[in-house]
């Protein structure tokens, strides 16, 4: 056994006996789930390949669509969200193509197609995960329409939306999900 682990085992045991409860774990789930309807604006966004795409055509497909808000140089939140995306792709395996993952930047001025391309490459994204930027005005409209307006990058929070094909409804997931929880949420809308 790892020598360090042996050293720290007593401490781990102590934690089990006397450890303070984790506030999130105490609540059972680490995230809130609600069903919402959103009126999305008719804007055109730009993906990591520099291609201009209407938001409507990104969202209205016959696949479930998962949307989150991130940015290329962010600290804690994006790694967590993006690790979730790539892990979902990995766990779906052959089914990866059955769900469309969409990340929208909240730092459009810095996140050029090149920056977004490098970000996806760093995370080893597979086809089916696209990253979008746009004019600041349009990005603000998109954030507002999702009720997720983040006026300042450093007040970013973890929020994920899942759209069921052909449905007016979105599942809004506020907080951080484990990979099993995330997979289950995506499966619920049907893949």
């Amino acid at each position: 056994m790892n020598r360090l682990l042996r050293l720290i085992l007593p401490i781990l045991l102590l934690t089990v006996c006397y450890g303070l409860p984790d506030p999130a774990a105490a609540a059972g789930k680490t995230y809130q789930r609600t069903q919402e309807q959103y009126q999305l604006p008719d804007v055109t966004l730009i993906n990591q390949n520099g291609k201009r795409v209407r938001l409507k055509s990104i969202v209205d497909t016959n696949k479930p669509v998962v949307v989150d808000f991130i940015f290329g140089t962010c600290t804690t939140i994006c790694p967590v969200l993006s690790a979730g995306f790539i892990n979902l792709q990995n766990r779906l395996g052959a089914d990866t193509q059955k769900v469309q993952l969409v990340s929208i930047t909240i730092d459009p001025e810095n996140d050029t197609p090149k920056v977004m391309q490098e970000y996806l490459k760093r995370y080893r994204a597979k086809p089916g995960w696209d990253f979008y930027t746009g004019s600041r005005k349009d990005i603000d409209l998109v954030m507002r329409s999702f009720g997720a307006y983040i006026p300042n990058k450093m007040s970013h929070y973890a929020i994920t939306f899942i759209h069921q094909p052909k449905s007016p409804h979105w599942i809004r997931l506020y907080g951080i999900l484990s990979s099993s929880e995330f997979l289950e949420e995506v499966r619920k809308v049907g893949i």
């Binding site: 450890g19 680490t30 951080i176």
Partner: peptide, 11 residues
């Protein structure tokens, strides 16, 4: 596990 004995947030 924190030095206080608390489990860290999953982040």
């Amino acid at each position: 596990v924190s030095a206080t004995g608390r489990d860290f947030l999953p982040v």
